[in-house]
């Protein structure tokens, strides 16, 4: 704490850093918001061998699809911690009323949320891929795909969360709103693994996923801002 007491005016960048720091602090203070989605992810993936057969041949065939679908659902579940607490304690209103540009603050807030919920999910994936007997050469495309895909899913989920934060029981509605919109990420993400298994290069698909990420990063905050103004209304 600089006790010099001199009052420095902060540029947008510094105040964005303050929002990011606050977001990370809030999520770290309630570790459940980090651990629970990861636990869901691990448990859901390990249900599939229990539900189906355990032989490697069958598992490796569905591994990419299973991992991507459960990752998608885990991201949706982790969305709850994004706006809910801010909505209830009123800081969301302060954010909407602050003279700072809302667009960048929302972007920083969602990406901060991704850092603590999406990234661990990606780092945990090799363990689950091993459990599902995924062939060796498919690991890297799966990880790269998830690395590019989960922030996009976070942003799309944030749009759904912003639309439903004002409603009482909005868990299921969030999924109904957001899952159709996340289909391109799912298709190209698991497609990357399939093409690698077919021996084809996956770089083209990684480029498409990157393009989806850039588009979502630039457009989603507009929708999130509009949706939050409606929910707080």
């Amino acid at each position: 704490m600089n006790l010099s007491g001199s009052r420095q005016t902060l540029g947008t960048g510094a105040s964005l850093a303050a929002t990011l720091q606050r977001e990370l602090l809030i999520i770290l203070r309630s570790p459940g918001d980090i651990v629970n989605p990861l636990m869901f992810y691990v448990i859901a993936v390990s249900l599939f061998p229990l539900g189906g057969q355990a032989d490697a041949e069958w598992l490796s065939g569905i591994a990419a699809g299973v991992i991507w679908v459960t990752a998608l659902l885990a991201v949706m579940l982790s969305m709850e911690s994004l706006f809910r607490s801010d909505y209830e304690d009123g800081s969301l209103e302060q954010l909407l009323l602050s003279p700072q540009p809302l667009y960048f603050h929302l972007l920083v807030k969602v990406l901060g949320h991704w850092l603590l919920t999406g990234l661990p999910l990606v780092l945990l994936t090799p363990v689950l891929a091993m459990m599902l007997a995924l062939p060796g050469e498919a690991y890297w495309p799966l990880l790269l795909g998830l690395l590019l895909g989960t922030p996009t899913l976070n942003l799309i989920g944030a749009i759904g969360m912003a639309l439903t934060v004002g409603l009482k029981r909005s868990g299921v509605l969030l999924a109904v709103l957001v899952l159709p919109l996340s289909i391109p990420v799912l298709v190209f993400g698991s497609g990357m693994v399939q093409t690698t298994l077919n021996g084809l290069p996956y770089t083209g698909l990684a480029a498409v996923l990157g393009a989806l990420l850039v588009m979502t990063v630039s457009l989603a905050p507009l929708a999130i801002g509009a949706a939050l103004r409606i929910s707080v209304n």
Partner: peptide, 22 residues
């Protein structure tokens, strides 16, 4: 308008950052 998980210092520091100063 303050987050219960954070301390008053952190809450107010964010509030000031939102107003554009530290």
């Amino acid at each position: 308008g303050i987050n219960k998980a954070l301390t008053p210092m952190q809450n107010l520091r964010w509030f000031c950052a939102n107003r554009g100063f530290a």
